[in-house]
Design a protein around this nucleic acid. Sequence first.
DNA 1: CTGAACTTTCAGTAATTTCTGAAAGTTTAA
DNA 2: TTAAACTTTCAGAAATTACTGAAAGTTCAG
Lengths: 207, 207
Amino acid sequence: MQTSTLTESFVAHFGEMGSRWGINRSVGQVYALLFVTQRPLHADEIGDTLGMSRSNVSMSLKELQAWQIVKMERVQGDRHEYFTTLGSVWDIFRAVAAERRRREIEPTLSMLRQALLMSSESETDKYAQQRMQEMYDLAEMANNWFDELQRMSPDSMRRLMSLGSKIAKLLDLKDRFFSSGTPNKDAQTALIKELESLEDPGKNTDN
Amino acid sequence: MQTSTLTESFVAHFGEMGSRWGINRSVGQVYALLFVTQRPLHADEIGDTLGMSRSNVSMSLKELQAWQIVKMERVQGDRHEYFTTLGSVWDIFRAVAAERRRREIEPTLSMLRQALLMSSESETDKYAQQRMQEMYDLAEMANNWFDELQRMSPDSMRRLMSLGSKIAKLLDLKDRFFSSGTPNKDAQTALIKELESLEDPGKNTDN
DNA sequence: CTGAACTTTCAGTAATTTCTGAAAGTTTAA
DNA sequence: TTAAACTTTCAGAAATTACTGAAAGTTCAG
């Protein structure tokens, strides 16, 4: 397959970044190529275009399918298996988040759970367990948060993302609203106003 | 330095996980040891305890200091440099998030910016650029979001994390409240009620 | 200032991860 | 049912990354 300079630099970058993202170069390149190519490609085309061995392409596609960000389709009267990227960038974001949770958080959670069950005699061990408990709380929270992310619709996700610092502001206002015994009219007005401006519609003109 | 089985298994796990977290084994182990040890340690103690070379310890500490999750302190009349982990797990979370943004998002953003400036002649290139634009929007949003995280106090962060799915619920209610021309009393009551229960105080008994 | 006591650097080596090509396995049009 | 046309597996080669030890650099008590 012919590729333009544009596509080539995108693919190359994804390959290099792969290592930082915890995926390997080949997998990154295959994904990048599929991502910017409109029609489905079969393994030979991919290997040919990227200059990598057939078996490496096969392995990479398998990995990407496991991540559920690439899907296979068959064409009647053609023995090739064709591949495309799956869904919108939001679906991809979600899939990647899920995989990272599985690989990066869950194993640590179960290790910490086990460590916290051990009995600690010495002062040293008591301190160590206390620190592990802190880390456990953090990890568990991150885990739950990923879990929520999983369940959200792409739309909710986009909106949540775009909220940013406004959430903190809202929490602040909420505190002031409810802390002062009887909620007063002014606090309520401020709160409602803040809610109204939550997503700052002035910004959303082209997405 | 003597270490218990508890500490040893924690350190070992961090070493193994390191690779998945994009940090190397040695760095992970050094961090883990400092994390669960109450008093500051110097490089020799660390190398001795973990059975790694002096130079490897030095490199690892340098890396951890660059991440700003370990700090050095000096003791009067002692030429050793002593090291401890920095702050609470929330500070660590923030530092790690900052580093990941720098390494994992920013380079991609600048590559995409450049790619999007290239002129696209063919249909193929036009499609590729359209896809890159989608990815750019996502990456930029993630970037901004990390940025906000950076600015938040540990307390706000903890609260935001514990909100989880309630945010989505709140956005829903907000829509219903403002969409219906004149906000009605019922919608307002529901909204206020949801706000009130945002952090489910029943759960927050011991943190 | 000095030099003992530390830390850092870096070139070479070891360990790990990635990639390939040959062989085995699978699928499907005829 | 067959065999052509594909995909997958896996052992070993290549590439990358991590680690060490010796040497150079730095710091600070005396």
